[in-house]
């Protein structure tokens, strides 16, 4: 867990001139999503518990934001409010200046559990949102075909979801969300259930897609490497109560490649995230009571 000496010698805030320039241009883009003093309480009168409070930040058009934070800090809750699936207890979220209320096709969502419609073929799944918005069948079919091409699954358009692997299912889910041409694509630990190799593949797919499509991505993950590899900026949330701990500009230059994982910027950034997520004082391993159930002579450590 200790950072390498190389990483600690580089500060995660020092940016390459190209990266700094990129952020300057990024901030000149219009703000697409404004989170304004957002608060969420759970529980009925008497025993309310505040999950987070005073959440405020801006996201610019076509940014790739990753959200990290300790488990239970309210990442999913925040993202569900952004998607309109839950209501905020205070404050508001503005999309293009308009307060969001209720779910809508302008905010696409990709869940960890795929949530593909099992009774529809892959293509019909992608067509679902298009049909909901009143496109006629042949248009929807054409567009769905294009999106399936983009995620590389045209060959499986007539398969049912249960015939696909996890990674393929998630690609269909991404195609289905993007087919609606949402302003923001919200993803809640989308690759959390995938094995390491598939996950790496999916990350690179996602970056390729994002490059080609005019969409802002809000991506929750608990994988720090994933957060560093994908993001423009990383929103670090803290817990008790949930709040913004830091909104970090990712110093790793684009275009990204897996080889950058060993670069000093990457390491410095990851080291910083580790510090924020697991403060060193709390790392103290909880000792289990020492009861030996085996005879001596087979020490495993």
């Amino acid at each position: 867990m200790n950072a390498s000496p190389l990483a600690s010698s580089t500060d995660y805030r020092t940016q390459d001139p190209a990266v700094a320039d990129r952020f300057k241009r990024l901030y000149q883009r219009p703000v697409i999503l404004t989170v304004d003093n957002l608060r969420k309480d759970f529980g009925s009168n008497g025993t309310t518990r505040t999950v987070f409070d005073n959440l405020s930040f801006n996201i610019h058009r076509r940014e790739f934001i990753t959200v990290i934070g300790p488990s239970g800090c309210g990442k999913s809750t925040f993202i569900r409010i952004a998607a309109g699936l839950d209501d905020a207890s205070g404050g508001q979220i503005l999309l293009d200046g308009q307060p969001v209320s209720g779910p809508g096709p302008d905010r696409g969502m990709v869940f960890q559990g795929y949530t593909l419609f099992p009774w529809l073929t892959v293509k019909r799944n992608v067509m679902f949102g298009l049909e909901m918005r009143g496109k006629d069948k042949s248009t929807a079919e054409n567009e769905a075909g294009l999106w399936l091409d983009m995620v590389g699954l045209s060959k499986f358009e007539n398969s049912y979801p249960h015939e696909l692997s996890g990674g393929m299912k998630q690609r269909v889910a991404i195609a289905r969300a993007l087919a609606n041409e949402p302003r923001v694509l919200i993803m809640d630990e989308p690759f959390g259930a995938l094995d390491a190799q598939t996950r790496a593949q999916m990350q690179s797919y996602l970056l390729q897609i994002w490059r080609k499509v005019d969409v802002t991505i809000l991506f929750i993950t608990h994988d720090l490497d994933e957060a560093c590899y994908l993001s423009d900026r990383i929103l670090v949330l803290g817990t008790n109560p949930g709040r913004v701990v830091e909104f970090i500009e990712n110093p790793v230059p684009r275009p990204r490649s897996p080889a950058q994982c060993t670069s000093p910027e990457f390491q410095a950034l990851k080291h910083r995230l580790e510090e924020l997520i697991h403060p060193p004082v709390e790392i103290e391993e909880q000792q289990l009571p020492m009861v030996r159930l085996t005879e001596a002579g087979d020490d495993v450590e």
């Binding site: 998607a83 309109g84 699936l85 209720g102 779910p103 809508g104 096709p105 905010r107 696409g108 969502m109 869940f111 559990g113 949530t115 593909l116 419609f117 679902f128 949102g129 909901m132 918005r133 289905r176 969300a177 609606n180 919200i186």
Partner: peptide
């Protein structure tokens, strides 16, 4: 599965469509 209903909602399904299509 409430996840399917939520997915359909984020894809723009109206209440009636949620019943008939999901």
């Amino acid at each position: 599965d409430p996840g399917l209903i939520e997915a359909a909602q984020t894809l723009g399904a109206s209440r009636r469509k949620l019943v008939t299509r999901v």
